[in-house]
Design a protein around this nucleic acid. Sequence first.
RNA 1: GUGGAUGUAGCUCAGUUGGUUAGAGCUCCGGUUUGUGGUACCGGAGGUCGGGGGUUCGAAUCCCCUCGUCCACCCCA
Length: 416
Amino acid sequence: MKYSTPRGTRDILPDESHALRWIQSKIAELLTLNNYQEIQTPIFESADLFQRAVGETTDIVEKEMYIFQDKGDRTMALRPEGTASVVRAFLQHNAIFQKRKVTKLFYQGPMFRYERPQTGRYRQFHQMGVEAIGSVSPYLDVETMMMGVDIFQKLGLQDVSLAVNSVGCEVCRPVIRERLKQFVESILSQLCEDCQSRFDRNPLRILDCKNPTCQTYFTGLPDIQSALCHDCSDHFLSVMTLLDEHHVPHTIDAHLVRGLDYYTKTVFEIRSNVLGAQNAICGGGRYDNLIAEMGGRKTPAFGYAIGMDRLYMVLKEIQAYLPTQPVSRFVLIGMGSKAKEKAFQTTLLLRQKGIQAEFMFKEGSVNDGLKEALAQGATFAVILGEQELEQDFYTVKHLKEKRQFTVKTVEELLVL
RNA sequence: GUGGAUGUAGCUCAGUUGGUUAGAGCUCCGGUUUGUGGUACCGGAGGUCGGGGGUUCGAAUCCCCUCGUCCACCCCA
């Protein structure tokens, strides 16, 4: 094959495409119930928007962005995530959004990251995400996470787990970071290469190391929660209490640290165990400083994104209900030029009445026509030949029941 | 970016210690059958053996490089 999809990209073929649209519309319904409105932002933006929002030292910015110069010599980037753009839009259209205390927006579309492809991980992948901007209330954290869990349950995916953690704020995070570094410093040479590089770049990530030899050195490692400031600690406690009160099953994952710099306080993931290592189908959290950092007034917010490719794979795997493509109700077969013309007219008429129908283009026998009708999954084949033309009727065959009969008019076809 | 597996027809896969024109099943197309379908029978199409280089009288087979796919790490959705 001379051409194929670029590495890490894929064609979404009709069956999946149809199912994905349906999934999107189901999710959008639920988001609307929660008062979210859709926003569409550009697929590429100024590269420094993402560098600033996501963080200079994150993997996404350091090595995964698709960056290019446009003809005006601007440095642009294909968006690696959605939050930065939504926040940018929120600030840019301040006049529209400032009327409300809380602005709830959702988006959907492709994101791009230059990574090594794997199951459930692509260079172009599809996310559907939400951003609720304007409240510090733990109720917002809980409402939003519950909505996430609800989405999966409504789609028939019961078996998910909600993992929650707090990463602190600008006050306590530096403290946590320092304590961790102090503890780790003495044993640093014993740890794996990844941990050694994390030490400078993102020490919190050391907590998350899966290397068993590293883990043996970690007894007594300070955990994040014990180091949270009052405000963060209270907030975390409130979120936990609310989740309990509303009977939302969840686990506290002290190792859950996100790779985007803008998160503060609550972070969470929703996981499914059917995809192997790529178990996160939804992830996000609170970002109370990002909007101020990007030049706005200090405005707290909470958001997350769902990985649509992964979600589809999971739903497919557990054999959840997914709609199949609608098929033609009728296939019109005309033999000879006159009958063909009448078949064509009938096809158009059926479609005008809102009935899915297909015209048999090929010159051929009834045989070919029936085969075609069958291949299309049609319910009825309508046969027009010399006899039908002379005596002005339609021969109709119910393909599954192998039942054949005649009708006089198109109206009779409509009510079949 | 690191490590491992893998690549033969549209699909699933055979292919011996290196040996002539690389096979099978399914799919597809044609015919038996220009007025009745999924079956049956007959016939046919389809492959630079992922690509490039090397070893050899001779390479799908051995060696090197490269590209793609899959899995794990990293990271994330």
